[in-house]
């Protein structure tokens, strides 16, 4: 089974299973008794027809993608190449009736296009467009025989829908995977514990705090307190846009846990909005040592640790 075909540079004529034989059957539909016309046979007939019209249908599809302003992140040549390989994989899936190959292909395709900023709407859009283009071609071919057209659509539509679903789900899964990875990365990055002086740590918090992040933050801080033998910690929350009762309670717990390890915590950078919210919702922060800004917090910490910063006269120019 072909897992995935890389986009061909051009539209080469693809030698396929004897189209002559199949097309003969499609030319003489009456030769096959309708009662015994199984879906598989119909599907094979459909695929043969769509393979014959491959170049024309694919170009039509690409034209409509560009017309609908989908995939704007990609150049026309790229769209053409991707369309070619999607088209072939689509037909293979229709023919074999198995979704593994198209699933693997959708995963690889998504891996390529997710970083380009292609949206779910666009992926679903192009797959549905392909479905439309192909269905129209089937309409045109079988419009003379309404019964046969109905049976053809009965065979075609469920298969096409399955493929569309598979591709869309594959894309969404890939995107979710990327999002999860990025969340991990942000989480790792966003909680640095910085030693600034002997026994003094700074923990700048940027962004929203949720329960998981608060816990991770506290764990990291406690470990840093032990390894740096810190006595004072300044937690700066200038970069925290909003705070609710939960987050405030997390903060109180962090302060309590640090104290159990013998470190004192100073919280700095409470914005006016946060101060108002905290007072309004009635969170008791009286146990917490707060200072207006980070500079004040560091000065207070230095005082507690017995440091004194004095300007050196010679250094002034």
């Amino acid at each position: 089974m072909r897992a995935y075909r890389s986009p061909a540079p051009g539209p080469p004529a693809r030698p396929r299973l004897a189209p002559a034989r199949i097309s003969r059957r499609s030319v003489e539909p009456d030769a096959v008794p309708s009662a015994r016309t199984s879906k598989a046979v119909l599907l094979r007939e459909i695929v043969a027809h769509l393979r014959q019209g491959r170049t024309q249908l694919r170009d039509e599809w690409v034209r409509r993608i560009i017309e609908a302003r989908l995939l704007t992140a990609m150049s026309q040549d790229e769209i053409f190449m991707e369309a070619t390989s999607v088209y072939d994989n689509y037909l293979d899936a229709l023919e074999t009736g198995t979704l593994e190959a198209v699933q693997a292909y959708a995963g690889q395709l998504s891996e390529r296009i997710v970083p380009r900023g292609v949206e779910t709407r666009e992926v679903v859009g192009i797959v549905l467009l392909l479905r439309d283009v192909l269905a129209r071609s089937l309409f045109a071919k079988y419009r003379a025989d309404f019964q046969l057209l109905n049976r053809i659509l009965d065979a075609y539509e469920p298969a096409a829908n399955r493929i569309a679903t598979t591709v869309a789900v594959g894309f969404v899964q890939e995107r979710e995977r990327v999002i999860r990875e990025q969340q991990e990365a942000i989480r790792e990055l966003s909680t640095p514990v910085l030693p600034v002086r002997e026994r003094l740590l700074i923990l700048p918090i940027i962004g929203l705090i949720d329960a998981q992040r608060a816990r991770q933050l506290t764990e990291q801080l406690l470990r840093a307190i032990r390894s740096n033998r810190a006595k004072v910690v300044v937690i700066d929350i200038t970069g925290v846009p909003a705070m609710d009762a939960n987050v405030a309670n997390h903060l109180v717990r962090t302060v309590d846990a640090s104290r159990l390890q013998g470190a004192m915590v100073i919280v700095t950078g409470l914005s006016p909005e946060i101060a108002q919210t905290l007072v309004t919702i009635g969170v008791d922060l009286s146990k917490m040592n707060t200072v207006g800004d980070l500079q004040g917090g560091i000065e207070e910490a230095e005082r507690l640790l017995g440091y004194q910063v004095v300007p050196v006269p010679e250094a002034r120019r």
Partner: peptide, 8 residues
């Protein structure tokens, strides 16, 4: 640290 966390 773990003890402190579970205590709070």
């Amino acid at each position: 640290p773990e003890v402190a966390l579970s205590m709070v």
